[in-house]
Design a protein around this nucleic acid. Structure first.
Lengths: 205, 205
DNA sequence: CCGGTTGGTTTCGACTCGATACAAATAGAA
DNA sequence: TTCTATTTGTATCGAGTCGAAACCAACCGG
């Protein structure tokens, strides 16, 4: 018993806090006729680069199967928030695009409510939390077999700019617009595998 | 490339990070034949005080209905991880108790994996995150109509110790063992409504 | 041309969850 | 006491989600 085991400020309880916040965030995301998975999908498509705007990439991101992702997309498409268009290069893949309605809906993202609460926190707290969560995400991913994801700048496949001002991805063997290179990619591969705590300790890297 | 708009370390993205961690944590909780709601329930019952070890309190905690909570309890009881015993004081309520099997199962809580990742973070980062998350929880709760919950020490209903060494709760008009007074309660009512950012700024309170 | 692989979709079944209706016990009032 | 209202928990039903598996079409290698 001894006060240190059940104390709420225990180190152990951080995971429970995260879990609880997660459940609260999840609960918020039943609105506007969408469910959490659908909100997640809409957000993902909105911030993914063109290689990741596909059902398969969405499935990886959501940590679910392609079949389930397909159903979620069906729901969103039926509601008119996005549409699937054939890919000119590979006729198997269908490229997902947000409609104007979808874009508009994102302005009412229920997670904005969380943002509001975050606004009230001091900047340095937010920064520290962000670093910690990033480290946790990376750690969990590598530990639990999840696919990493990130932004081209820090990606091992990134081969810098080309002559015509675009960026080049060595994995897809294709070019990316500057805009796309700043968006989420499911094929992200960290350049160096950094020691998570080292990155934290350094502060800003 | 003006890193400040879509940079992953943006202030805005903290909510997305939280959401993502939440989904990862959720995904982990499909194991040992339990689902996330069942894990949450088991954990809750394990750390709730005796007033909160009931189906109704669980429903409040999970943010769901009593019916759904009842089903979750059915599943857990059928699997032998807890049992419902009649309450001697009020024949309507059924008191939930963890079995030895349930207690043992908690040792394999999939969230322990998260704890492992947390272990690798520096203490001060963990502390800051905990403070931030606590503030967020409180803020979200008050904003989104959720019931607060906490531990008797800091509760407005708490009336201190009695002669026989127990604690007294003014809300339930009943006594609590010292142990119980350190556990989770669903009827928690913060003594003072503290300014969340003020509490943060002070550091350790 | 022909297997093997990859990307997506569909179908099916198990399960979850919320809404509703319901039973039983309690509380309060007349 | 007796009557009603409230509280606590359960059972049932239907919509919807999700994962597994089957399936199809397109790409790729020989």
């Amino acid at each position: 018993m001894s006060a240190q085991t059940t104390e709420i400020t225990d180190k152990e309880s951080l995971s429970r806090l995260l879990d609880r916040i997660g459940r609260m965030a999840r609960g918020l995301q039943y609105c506007h006729g969408l469910n959490p998975a659908q909100w997640d999908s809409l957000r993902f498509v909105a911030q993914a680069n063109r290689f990741s705007q596909t059902p398969g990439a969405l499935a990886v991101f959501l940590g679910t199967t392609k079949g389930t992702a397909s159903q979620t997309l069906n729901a969103l498409e039926k509601k008119g928030y996005l549409k699937r268009v054939p890919d000119p290069d590979d006729k198997r893949v269908r490229h997902i695009e947000i409609t104007d309605e979808g874009q508009a809906l994102l302005a009412e993202d229920p997670l904005n409510c969380l943002d509001l609460a975050i606004e009230r926190l001091p900047d340095e707290v937010v920064d520290t939390m962000k670093q910690g969560l990033n480290a946790l995400c990376a750690d969990m991913q590598s530990r639990c077999g999840g696919q990493g994801m990130g932004i081209c700048d820090a990606c091992g496949h990134f081969e810098g700019a080309t002559d015509n001002g675009n960026m080049r991805c060595g994995y897809k063997q294709a070019e990316l617009s500057c805009e796309d290179a700043k968006r989420f990619c499911i094929n992200f591969n960290p350049v160096e595998a950094p020691a998570v705590d080292a990155r934290i300790a350094e502060g800003d890297a």
